[in-house]
Amino acid sequence: MKLTVKKYKEQVIEWPKSGCHIMAQYDDEKIIVYQAYRKEIGEFAVNNQYFGGQFSLSRMTWIKPNFLWMMYRSGWGTKEGQEVSLAIHLKISAFRNYLLNAVYTSYDQTEGISHDEWRSELENSSIRLQWDPDHDPNGVKQERKAIQIGLKDNFIKSFAQDDILFIEDISQFVKEQYEFVKNGQLENLSTPAEKSFVFDDEMLNRKLKIITEYAHGQ
């Protein structure tokens, strides 16, 4: 497994407790995002290192850079159709491009534009953006917000074929760590090492409501 992992208990004391944060594992070249699929789609992606086969290019796909938020959504890989957990090593340039072109799914999260302007942008955008409450390993809602990004049309095609550096199946790791969660042994739980990501672009950070005091990214 190419992911760098660290004890959850060591990480959680360093993570911001509230506000909008892109919690992720990243370097100068890539950022890790997560998805969960049924076996046919997940195995095709890992074996071919791109998304194809039964993967739909006509439906919006959502990516999540926060591991525990993905685990909350997939039930630690136990929900039907989400049994295969994938760690996708995504080009940092593609991630930035997605967010530059993203429109909030809810008008309540936008600032500085009218409802009609937001509606027009939403209808003409191929990328959706929303902040949702983050969750701890047991699924308890946190004050900190986690980001998810929805892609469709040309962006989903670019994501599926061109924007990915590496796809790995982390289902066994997820299964092993879930045993610690179920048994109340969080002291043994390891999760991908994550820290707050920000862009070297203040306008983009403001659009995303990111608090920039924690880290610097791309």
Rank of each mutant, 00 (worst) to 15 (best):
H89D: 10
D116F: 08
I113H: 07
Q148H: 15
W15T: 03
D153L: 08
I149E: 03
R96D: 10
A146Y: 05
L90I: 02
G139E: 01
R119P: 06
V84W: 06
F95V: 06
P137V: 02
R144G: 06
W118P: 12
S106F: 15
D134C: 01
W69N: 05
R73F: 09
G19D: 14
G19Q: 09
Y26T: 01
L122F: 13
R38A: 00
D28W: 05
L151D: 00
D116P: 01
W76G: 13
L122K: 15
G77H: 13
A146K: 03
S74F: 09
S126H: 11
K79G: 09
L57S: 02
Y37A: 01
T78F: 12
Y72S: 08
F95S: 05
S74Q: 11
D108M: 12
Q109V: 00
N101I: 07
R73C: 11
V140M: 10
I88V: 13
Q142I: 00
F44G: 02
M60W: 08
I63G: 11
N138E: 01
G75Q: 10
S58P: 04
I92G: 12
W62R: 07
L122Y: 14
L68F: 08
Q148V: 00
L122Q: 04
F95Y: 15
V33F: 02
K91E: 14
P65M: 03
N66I: 06
I92Q: 15
K17H: 13
K39I: 02
W62V: 12
I147M: 15
